[in-house]
Amino acid sequence: MIAALCSALGVFLVLRRLSLIGDGLAHVTFGSVALALLLRFQSVYTAIAAIPCVLLSAFGILKIAEKARIYGDAAIGIVSSLGIATGIMLASLAGGFNVDLFSYLFGNILAISSEELLVTAALSFTVLLTIALCYNDLLAITFDEELAATSGIKVARINSVLVSLTALTVVLAMKVVGIMLISALLILPATTALQLARGFKTAILLAVTLGIASVAGGIFISFLLNLPTGATIIFISFILFAASFLIRKLRSLG
């Protein structure tokens, strides 16, 4: 489910040149996880507590870009570094990095509790339903915001929906692939699909299929070879990207 979420959202983010928003929000997640661990929250509440922080940061990125008249990448950089700095500060106050914090940084799929699984399933369903309901508006603002506005679409509202969905997805994905690798799960299946897809809906469906294949394959291989799961998922995603790139090149030659 998380693979499907990341991959579907990734197509919109990559095409809108917001690829690194996942990275920025993941760094904020690091700060909020450090705070939750400092306050000795239970694991399931750590994720829930991260949601408002990350949502606030997502809107912060939009507002900083709009009000300070800077590009989105600079706004992401500001919020991202603030998140990391907060995390380091809080981890230091808590007496250094511990095993729990490392499981969030690098992912630990085996550490996901049944309560976390339930929260993840409920939120994943909400995010997928929202993408399905807003699909045409999301496509319109991804193609061109001004044309979308002159079709009566509330561009600011749809942008807010997109960053909120991204914020929720980042929180959900942090235990699967880890804070350090979330952006790869948002970017790699999407860019792989964009090499091959002919049609926007096809791009989304292909990205989702590739994302699920990468996560399922990564989990299987990591168990088989006793490798870290998050990193294995990303390596598989990269291999699929390289293969799709070659296929596109061969197709253009033919």
């Binding site: 095409l15 079709s151 964009l194």
Partner: peptide, 29 residues
Amino acid sequence: IGYLPQGLQMLNPGFPATVREIVRLGRLS
């Protein structure tokens, strides 16, 4: 109202939507 902005022909060459999908977006209004 139908609107054609300036410079839209410079769009991302990797944009995966078909001509039909783009034209249909006008129907969202």
